[in-house]
Nucleic acid binder design. Structure first.
Lengths: 260, 260
DNA sequence: CGGAGGTTTGAGAGGCGTCAACCTCCGTGG
DNA sequence: CCACGGAGGTTGACGCCTCTCAAACCTCCG
């Protein structure tokens, strides 16, 4: 099985043994974690919670004592400008440790809210301190997970600074497709994404109206369709080209490099 | 001395005892590090190197075995688009651990180059592994340092996604002023910054021509001047307002900036 | 059946990019 | 001493991309 390149690129999440954390780092180094480390992480979850769609989870500046791993659904992090317009700074998918960076820092510099309905595993920071005291290698994996977030932030900076509306949207879809494929939630360029056009606008630094026009353009070029939260990438190579997308920054383990 | 609020907000770097790492986390939690931790870090540096201005340090994708802390000078991290246009994703100042995130990840997803001439301390990754094995609290400080980078990335995303040209430039200067003050390299809104107008354009997602016009507008509004790499903020409150700048995200331990 | 939220389309305005010219400054070399 | 060249700064004209404002339509759901 492990020799089949297809199976390598889309490993099956082991959700039976690890129902909460089975997608953590899946596709980006989970296979270098030992069974013991995976077990320690799984058993460190303090509780499991569910929240409805469009629900506020954490507000900027609040002291935080828990960190959340996303099990099911989609979560976004965002900042509001003076007039209340919103800028998304990241979108999280199952397996992501949404606010693990609140552990070393003790508070968040932005807001967190659900997109669709979600299920999350909560980790008390005292438990995480215990992990850093006793399991340095697992600690480096957790650290690594926060750094992949930073890598995605950088790519978003590039996207907003250097691409036009079509490139920004194309890049956004390319990234989500690649990440969802790693955790087994996208297949052949098809996946669910509970976003509206105004949401896309907030992620890409555009207005809802212009997102609408640009989506039509992408559709008419035969690159992708997006309707009712359902994405279909029709021409992956073409979309990547418009997006100037190169998945290296996702640190996937089917890429060319290995961490540590 | 420590009771004087003025002195608290701009602590003097202890460069005599810690010539290499004396500005690390200065103003953002260094005072919570123990003397032993500061000593361990200082003594962990493998070597010290100097580089000229506009010198390439690390290329995207290269395996890295050392991480660099900036002692003197300015360094930038950037990504190039298909036509060779560049987007800066961060600017580093003395005390910054420039590519510490290359430690858990083993490679970089972007390029690093000097702006002016620099002096850097290099840390071998094997030494850093030793720190994570033996000094969990110091490890959390290092982790924290990489997360403040991520916080700045998020602010850059906001800046590019939601602000116009004037706001982007204003925000850029506000951030650098706040950070340089924390390490004692800016005083009363005045500091050196070895950048050209095209460099500013690459940091703010603009063109050099438009940066020129926008700088003139900011100057004519009495907000700031920028000439020959010398910045003078004339109206800090006004500049922050244009920038929608709030320094919370810098995790500084002296709270908001006090204008002169 | 009516309302709310999301999508689609149009018209007009403005911000920013592009192209181009000219300037100053400064180091180099004749 | 001046000629030269290159890099960066400054300004103008023009055009396109995206925003703003507005209205119609569509779909879902109470």
């Amino acid at each position: 099985m492990r020799d089949d390149p297809e199976a390598m690129s889309v490993p099956a999440p082991d959700l039976a043994a690890y129902p909460l954390t089975g997608r953590f780092l899946l596709g980006r180094g989970r296979d270098r974690m030992t069974a013991e480390q995976m077990r320690i992480l799984e058993d460190s979850a303090t509780e499991v919670k569910e929240y409805p769609a469009r629900h506020h989870l954490v507000r900027r500046g609040e002291p935080v004592h828990m960190s959340m791993m996303l099990i099911d659904g989609y979560v976004s992090r965002y900042m509001d400008d003076r007039e209340g317009y919103r800028q998304l700074v990241s979108v999280h998918i199952p397996g992501d440790f949404v606010d693990l960076h609140g552990f070393p820092t003790g508070r968040l510099d932005h807001d967190i809210g659900t997109l669709g309905p979600v299920k999350m595993a909560l980790f008390d920071h005292r438990t995480l301190v215990g992990i850093t005291e006793q399991h340095p290698q697992l600690t480096r994996f957790l650290w690594f997970a926060t750094l992949t977030d930073a890598a995605m932030h950088r790519e978003w900076i590039f996207r907003l600074g250097r691409l036009g509306a079509d490139g920004r949207l194309a890049h956004f879809f390319c990234e989500l497709n690649a990440r969802l494929e790693m955790v087994g939630l996208a297949h052949g360029g098809t996946f669910e994404l509970p976003l509206t056009q105004p949401d896309l606008a907030e992620a890409c630094g555009l207005t809802g109206v212009h997102v609408n026009r640009t989506l039509r353009a992408l559709r008419e070029q035969g690159l992708l369709t997006f309707r009712n939260g359902h994405v279909e990438i029709l021409d992956h190579a073409g979309l990547c080209s418009v997006a100037e997308f190169d998945s290296d920054y996702l640190y996937s383990d089917c890429g060319k490099w290995k961490p540590i």
